[in-house]
């Protein structure tokens, strides 16, 4: 079981992914806009983030950039899931450190497979963190 954070402003997509990922045994955390993501990562330490690009408050690329310079979060793999499909956006996101890039409309099982591959539950670290005072 891995903890997956889904960040998307579309409630339908959140519902869909939550259902799908929970059905596959993952623990799902949701963020409704870009501003919530970094806080939620610090709070829940997810093993993977599924990130939309165009979100209110802070866009996905900016979230990704900040995430990658945050020493506590930089190792968390990020899958971009967005309607943007221009070359510059895809390449830019991968350069920023995204682990994968999927374009909407996407195939749910494909995403599930990629999540399985990238999300490695960090059991040891979890225990570590549990002992560390916060």
């Amino acid at each position: 079981m891995a903890r997956v954070l889904i960040a998307d402003d579309d409630p339908l997509l959140r519902g869909l992914l939550q259902h799908k990922l929970a059905g596959d045994g993952h623990l799902v955390i949701v963020a409704e806009d870009g501003g919530e993501v970094l806080g939620l990562i610090r709070e829940h330490h997810p093993d993977l983030v599924v990130l939309d690009a165009m979100m209110p408050v802070m866009d996905g690329f900016e979230v990704l950039r900040r995430l990658k310079v945050d020493p506590q979060a930089s190792s968390i793999p990020v899958i971009m899931l967005t309607a943007l499909r221009r070359e510059a956006d895809v390449v830019g996101a991968l350069q920023l450190g995204a682990a994968d890039y999927l374009v909407k409309p996407f195939i749910p099982d494909e995403l599930l497979e990629r999540v399985r591959r990238l999300a490695v539950p960090q059991q040891v670290q979890d225990d570590d963190r549990a002992r560390r005072p916060r």
Partner: peptide, 12 residues
């Protein structure tokens, strides 16, 4: 249309 904008493949 909302679904079709998000998902494709056999589930759709």
């Amino acid at each position: 249309l909302d679904i079709a904008g998000l998902v494709r493949g056999h589930e759709r």
